[in-house]
């Protein structure tokens, strides 16, 4: 078992309000890890620490360390870091550009201007995101014309185009209908062959369907982290049991 990324003694404050309490957590490589827990438990906050998106909030203060490739990312350059750790958001957020330009945006920004290579990257990313067949004839149409589910797969493809190691997903299906959701879930399961995926979800069945590992968070603390099977069938903590059986949350 190889750790892809791990957090040690992570504390996070928004102004004076503490959102994460001494979090220790380890995510395994090439596995899908789900973070579950009631609203406001800090799972999205934790996720957004891993590629330092929280720093966009001016009042946010973080202490502790997050190790990625045995380096503390809190002291590293966030721009370089985010090339390695991509993110998919709750709301599909394609740029108001063409489908092609959306995918090619990241590679271009990182200095790739060769049209042939870009074409290959775009095609491969769209294929990996199971979107190629639906859009290959209209790559230069606006991405905003796609359906919600297609937009979200486009955003995944856009993340893949930068070839990250880890993909963070912040409730990627919560704005989608069941059919689009199931497509994305299949896609996520396929992704683990090449990528480490960490997914925040509200949806318990989704966690059981897609994830190998599940972490349960409550009030800014990681209560329990284990194989998904174990968490949902035989959790060690009472609190976890109560949550997954729907007694609160």
């Amino acid at each position: 078992m190889t750790p892809a990324i791990q957090a040690n003694h992570l504390n996070l404050f928004y102004g004076t309000k503490q959102a994460l309490f001494d979090v220790d957590i380890l995510f395994e490589e090439k596995k899908i890890t789900a973070l579950v827990g009631p609203s406001g438990c800090g799972k999205s906050t934790l996720l957004r620490c891993l590629n330092r998106m929280n720093e966009l909030i001016p009042t946010c203060k973080i202490s502790g360390e997050i190790l990625f490739r045995s380096e503390n990312i809190l002291k590293a350059d966030p721009v370089e870091l985010r090339k390695q750790i991509g993110m998919v958001f709750q709301q599909p957020n394609p740029f108001p550009k063409s489908i092609y330009d959306n995918i090619a945006y990241g590679p271009r920004a990182h200095g790739e201007h060769d049209t042939g290579k870009l074409d290959t990257i775009v095609e491969n990313s769209l294929k990996s995101a199971a979107l190629w067949d639906e859009v290959k004839d209209r790559l230069h149409d606006s991405a905003l014309g796609l359906s919600g589910g297609q937009q979200q797969r486009l955003c995944i493809a856009r993340t893949l185009a930068v070839s990250p190691e880890i993909i963070l997903m912040d409730e990627p299906c919560s704005a989608l209908d069941p059919i689009a959701t199931s497509k994305i879930e299949t896609l996520i399961t396929d992704l683990k062959q090449k990528y480490t995926v960490i997914i925040v979800t509200h949806n318990m069945p989704q966690a059981t369907r897609v994830s190998d590992m599940t972490g349960f968070m409550y009030l800014g603390k990681v209560i329990e982290m284990d194989e998904t099977q174990t968490i949902f069938v035989n959790p060690a903590e009472k609190l976890t049991q109560h949550y997954i059986t729907g007694k609160f949350g």
Partner: peptide, 24 residues
């Protein structure tokens, strides 16, 4: 959203401004 999406791809803030936000 555009800003977050672009930054999460490991792109500098200036590149985000000049290639996503200004064109939008």
């Amino acid at each position: 959203d555009y800003k977050e999406a672009s930054l999460s791809l490991g792109v500098t803030y200036w590149h985000t401004i000049s290639h996503v936000l200004l064109p939008a």
